[in-house]
């Protein structure tokens, strides 16, 4: 097969939006390849890059654990496969989490990003917001962030690069080929972040 193969983890959440944003990013960059929905370990094993979409992290994690996808993603990450996790996706990629109200909690995680997540960090749905943020470190000086019941990162390990903050709250991080965002780049017309990810996948490939 020619070109890169990027998968969208299609368990639950805004799968179609990430599929469309990635497709458009590849077309604009002139990168050859396919974007496909993936649900099973077999489908995941053939990928060059993976996006874990927004949704409910408890649901995506629990169901990916049930059919063995979680284990397969871990293996692929260990081999250097780039992964972009938006909102719930970032939560799944992390090592440690707590909830702003409920406190300590257990849910299946990929246990890779060396960060501590605070779930629902900005409040409930009524407090969901849109704001312009910047991610200078990956060449995106201005990005319209859509934050929906968003988590934030409250602690990072030494290998983690902080890409963006809203006031004191960290909202985007990178560790190796893994990127996590609190917000939903798939819900805006700006493809900068998906383009950055596609380039990362292509370089790795």
């Amino acid at each position: 097969m020619t070109g890169v193969s990027i998968g969208i983890l299609a368990v639950q959440g805004d799968i179609a939006e990430n599929l469309s944003a990635t497709r458009m990013a590849m077309d604009e960059l002139g990168v050859k390849g396919v974007v496909i929905e993936v649900k099973t370990p077999e489908q995941i094993s053939d990928l060059d890059g993976l996006i874990i979409p927004g949704g409910e992290s408890t649901v995506i994690g629990t169901l990916s654990l049930v059919n063995g996808s979680l284990k397969k993603i871990k293996e692929k990450i260990a081999f250097g496969m780039p992964v972009l996790g938006t909102c719930a996706g970032m939560i799944l990629l992390s090592k440690k989490i707590k909830d702003r109200i409920v406190g300590a909690m257990e849910q299946p995680l990929l246990d890779y990003l060396d960060i501590m997540i605070e779930r629902n960090a900005f409040g409930r749905q009524k407090d969901s917001f849109e704001a312009d943020i910047q991610l200078e470190k990956i060449g995106v000086p201005k990005f319209h962030g859509v934050f929906i019941r968003s988590p934030s990162v409250i602690d990072v390990g030494k290998d983690v690069e902080i890409l963006s903050k809203v006031n004191e709250k960290i909202v985007a991080v990178k560790q190796g080929n893994i990127i996590g965002t609190s917000f939903h780049p798939e819900l805006t017309a700006d493809l900068s972040i998906h383009k950055y990810f596609v380039n990362l996948v292509q370089k790795k490939n």
Partner: peptide, 16 residues
């Protein structure tokens, strides 16, 4: 806050 993107977007996160 309270824009259509945020309200409809919230529903999008529930899909499937």
């Amino acid at each position: 806050r309270g824009t259509s993107v945020l309200k409809r977007g919230f529903a999008h996160m529930l899909k499937n």
